[in-house]
Structures are given as structure tokens and as C-alpha cells.
Simulated scan of single mutants.
Amino acid sequence: MSTPLGRRVAAEGVGTAVLVAVVVGSGIQATELSHDVGVQLLANSISTVFGLGVLIVLLGPVSGAHFNPAVTLAAWFAGRRSGDGPTLREVVAYVPAQLAGAVGGAVLADAMFAEPLVKWSTHDRFAGHLWLAETVATAGLVLLILGLGRTGQGRLAPAAVASYIGAAYWFTSSTSFANPAVTIGRTFSDTFAGIAPGSVLPFIVAQLLGAAVGLGLAALLFGAAVPSGTTTAVVVAYGETERAASAP
């Protein structure tokens, strides 16, 4: 029997909330401990790498550990014919949970550091090179996730995905949000990790474009068909044991 949808949706909401709390909270802490922007980014990225890796290990078996609408949509699109991806019903349930979790995580981080619970960010990130960076970051993330599934290496997802995000913090000018939910959540905190509301829409458009590019690259590099016994649907395959037991 597979994990009930309600439990999977809860895992996506809680996981996204904790992820954003890690990103925003470590950003606040880094700012309080150092005035050096490089040190702040280093602290923020290291915290995110470890936090994301732990969340994927813990919640991957429950929901797949997407924590990201772009990943959920890409997984649905990639698996819509083979049946390995989430259903449209699951997408409709996952995405609002991810968005609500992201907002809740930002508010939680603000509360832990005695910041105003809701204070719109004034950190402007409205520039073409940042949009390009978000396209590249999200394309790489989707390519990695689908590539791991199509090559039967899904077990490496916790380390691989966390490592990629950590690297992308440094090789992209935008510091690799690569996640529409996280982008929206970070508007609720006027801190080092924040993004001004006016900068959000182009970021999300770039992220969705990047997801489409990642899908295309995955098809080009690994083929459109999914090898038997693998999945492109999730970062970590939830319900894998139940599916194996029911297979003919």
C-alpha cells in the first residue's frame, strides 16, 4: 500500500518549510556573525547543503522530497506517459503545500531571530544576468534529478542534489534559488537571503524556463524513454518497496 496522499502533501509542506527556515535562518545568523559578504555566503551555502541533504534522506521515502514546484512539474511532465511521474492530482496538491511551507519557513526563521515576522525584503535582484543564472541553475537541477533516475542512480540523490545546490550558490550570480516556492518565501524576510517582491516574477519565469531546458537536455542525453525499474518522478523514489512488491 503506497503512502497516503495527505501524508505526502504534509511531507512536502513541512520539508519546504524547514528548507526555507534553513536558508533564511542561516542568512540571518551569517549576517550577525560577519560583515564579510563572502563569509556570509559561505555560511549560508554550507548550511543549505547539509540541511537539504538531511531533508531528502528523511522525507524522500515519504513524498519524494521535491520541495520545489519546478521539480514537481518537471517530474510530472517527464513521467506523464510512462506513469512514473506524479499524477496531475498530486501536482495540484504538492505545489500549494510547497508554497505555503515556504512562507511558513521564512516566518519561522524570522521569529527565531526576533526579526519582524513579516517584513518585505528590499533586496533588489532585478537584472538580466540574474535571470540567466536562475535559468542555468534550475536547468542543471532538473537535469541532475532526471539523469539520476534514468541511469538508475537515485540512491545518490541526497548527496548529489545537495552538492549541486551548494556548488550553484557559487557558480551562479543569483546564488541559485532554482525554486519558485523558495523564491516566494524569501520575500518575507528583509535579510541577507531575501529577495524584493518586485524581483520575484522574472525569477520564477526563469526557473520554469530552466526546468523546460533541463527536460530537453535529459531527453537529449539520456533518451526520452525511462529504463525499466527506474523513475524520473522524484528526487528519491517514495513507495519503491510497495511498487516492487506488487510488480508482476
Rank of each mutant, 00 (worst) to 15 (best):
L19I: 04
V22W: 07
G25Q: 09
T31H: 15
L33C: 02
S34A: 15
H35F: 08
H35L: 11
V39P: 06
Q40K: 13
L42Y: 14
T48W: 05
G51T: 07
G51L: 06
L55W: 00
I56V: 13
I56M: 08
L58C: 10
L59E: 05
P69S: 07
P69A: 03
V71G: 01
G83V: 12
P96E: 03
Q98C: 01
G104K: 05
G104I: 03
G105T: 06
L117Y: 10
L117H: 09
S121F: 13
S121E: 09
D124E: 14
F126I: 00
A127P: 00
H129T: 10
H129V: 09
H129M: 06
L132Y: 01
A133M: 08
V136F: 12
T138G: 02
G140K: 02
L141F: 07
L141N: 05
L141R: 03
G149S: 09
G154E: 05
A159P: 05
A159D: 04
A160K: 09
S163M: 13
T175I: 09
S176Y: 13
F177D: 03
N179W: 03
A181N: 00
A181L: 06
A181P: 05
V182K: 06
I184F: 08
F188D: 02
D190F: 13
G194L: 04
I195E: 00
V200W: 07
V200H: 03
V205F: 06
V205P: 03
Q207I: 04
Q207G: 01
L209G: 13
A212I: 09
G214N: 04
G216E: 09
L220V: 12
L221P: 10
A225G: 07
P227M: 07
S228A: 15
Y238L: 12
P248V: 12
P248R: 08
